[in-house]
Nucleic acid binder design. Structure first.
Length: 492
RNA sequence: UCCCUGGUAGCUCAAUCGGCAGAGCGGGUGGCUGUUAACCACUAGGUUGGCGGUUCAAGUCCGUCCCAGGGAGCCA
């Protein structure tokens, strides 16, 4: 056995955390785990005579008679400095302990005489768990995001990506907490769908038919031979399912994977992403906007309150204006502006836009960025769009030309949230679908909602990765999801 | 998919007008009694993205393909 894990385990089950007082925010597993978490050690409020920690070596600084190891176990951003004196058990293994190796250290937690850390561990025993050779690709100096994407399996071991995925986990938790606290029920919308008109982009087809010999009949695919007996796809939205559940449970939300087969190659699109879709019965567009604003604000507040240490890294190294942005989102009301007014603002902005401005034109990226970054200098909700540029299910306004839709635009990212009041009037919805040439019989269950006890209802979709980009300042969606899926990229 | 910019050592980057392929980090060896991007000395490490062309001579110029990043469209 190459490592000393077995040998090190010879003194397993000793009470290694005597005098241990866990700090407030760290994971508290010490009662069931043999090892202490580095988060708890570096945030300790008293010395400890003996702890056992395990982690990955970030750097080693050697002298003739002693060495410093910095190890990280993912429990927090900070590394733990370990001092190893010549002669302690495991000293002879030090040449095998290069950056990236996993090790186990038993030692005393003592005040550090050096600068840069309050506590350090004076090793009583060091054991190699798994070596990492000199070809280990991560070094302690800075790497580019592009390079780290090529080693997505190892990048969580860097400060930046470790912090990112800790924040991602905590924000996912915060989303569930938020909805739970506001009377929303989580619903699990289907991932595989038979409705090919969910209305939001190209879909990935799901099939068990042999692609090299698809069964044909008069040139057409015999879908009755396919798994479901009809065409099937991965979901592009949980909205239709959420609407049905909302019209029974009142307030619901989905938080699940979403798939778009668009050939988009941009820093804010992925083929597989996670979307949060609340849906409320007995609600108007104003309620919808209130919810979107409060949700985004709450997430910013949660991050500021619960991810301060990790966020500080992004404020320092990734996006210098991050803290100002988050404070702004957390405290100031968002701007709300009807679409028609937004077009007027753009028209008299004096800006030379590449795309035309005026009623009936869609808001382009350049327009969104002007509104939120320059004109409002804050998140802005644009609402009441012309019906022609929005989806069939959005509620017709009394003016007959706009629908009760809203987009929440934020600096740097653009559209973070898109939502609407849903058309609950059967005759209006039916007429609209007819205008668009949609097969109503395929939506019989969706129309049934309007037939039986219909209620005004509203909801929206928020891309979780885009929320993370806002919260962390990271500028590419491929870096806020551990293993991104984009066109021509299915590594890992 | 379109437009722009790139691709040089394991990583981050230099290389003047077309004229000998370089540094830092990382690795190895040796030194150093408190380091923290440790330090000092020595050392190994290259098909300059691929293919073709121009030239006495190509990392550098031309063509083409591949890959990456940014911008745009589509959207969350």
């Amino acid at each position: 056995m190459p490592g000393g894990y077995g040998a090190g385990a010879s003194r397993q089950a000793h009470p290694h955390v005597r005098g241990f007082r866990p700090c407030g925010h760290a994971l508290k597993k010490e009662s069931i785990m043999q090892r202490a978490l580095i988060a708890d050690v570096v945030h300790a409020d008293a010395p400890m005579e003996s702890v056992t920690v395990m982690g990955w070596v970030r750097t080693k600084r050697e002298s003739k008679d002693f060495a410093f190891l910095e190890i990280n176990d993912g429990s927090c951003l900070k590394n733990l400095q370990v001092v190893v004196d010549a002669g302690v058990p495991g000293w002879e293994d030090l040449p095998r302990i290069l950056t990236g190796a996993s090790i186990q250290v038993r030692g005393a937690v003592v005040p550090s005489p050096g600068k840069g850390q309050r506590w350090e561990v004076r090793a009583q025993e060091v054991a190699v768990i798994g070596e990492a050779g000199p070809e280990y690709p991560l070094q302690k100096k800075r790497h580019t995001d592009e390079f780290l994407r090529t080693i997505a399996h190892l990048r969580p071991r860097t400060n930046k990506y470790g912090a990112l995925y800790r924040i991602r986990a905590r924000l996912a938790h915060a989303v569930h907490q938020y909805f739970h606290d506001h009377g929303f029920y989580l619903v699990h919308a289907p991932i595989i769908t038979g409705s090919d008109c969910e209305g939001a982009g190209e879909m990935f087809q799901v099939t068990t038919l042999p692609l090299e010999a698809v069964p044909l009949e008069k040139g057409a695919v015999r879908y009755e031979d396919d798994f479901f007996g009809r065409p099937a796809s991965l979901t592009v939205s949980g909205q239709l399912a959420a609407e049905n559940l909302a019209c029974a449970l009142g307030r619901v939300y989905t938080f699940g994977p979403t798939f778009r087969a668009e050939n988009s190659n941009t820093p804010k699109h992925a083929a597989e992403f996670w979307m949060i879709e609340p849906e409320m019965a007995f609600a108007t567009l104003a309620d919808d906007m209130d919810l979107a604003e409060d949700l985004v604000r709450s997430m910013a507040r949660y991050a500021l309150a619960h991810c301060a240490e990790d966020l500080a890294l992004f404020a320092q190294f990734v996006e210098p204006t991050l803290m100002a942005t988050l404070e702004n989102v957390a405290t100031k009301p968002f701007v709300r502006m009807p679409y028609a007014e937004a077009m007027e603002v753009l028209g008299r902005s004096g800006k030379e836009f590449q795309f035309p401005v005026g009623f009936g034109h869609d808001l382009q990226t350049e327009h969104e960025r002007y509104l939120t970054e320059e004109y409002c200098k804050a998140p802005v909700i644009v609402y009441d769009y012309p019906k022609e540029i929005k989806a069939f299910y959005m509620r017709m306004n009394d003016d007959g030309r706009t629908v009760a839709a809203m987009d929440l635009l934020v600096p740097r990212i653009g559209e973070l949230v898109g939502g609407s009041a849903r058309e609950e009037r059967l005759d209006v919805l039916s007429r609209r679908m007819e205008e668009l040439g949609m097969p109503q019989e395929e939506y019989w269950w969706y129309l049934d909602l309007r037939r039986f006890g219909t209620v005004p209802h509203a909801g929206f979709g928020m891309g979780f990765e885009r929320l993370l980009m806002l919260i962390t300042g990271v500028s590419n969606i491929r870096d806020v999801i551990p293993f991104p899926r984009t066109p021509k990229h299915l590594e890992f």
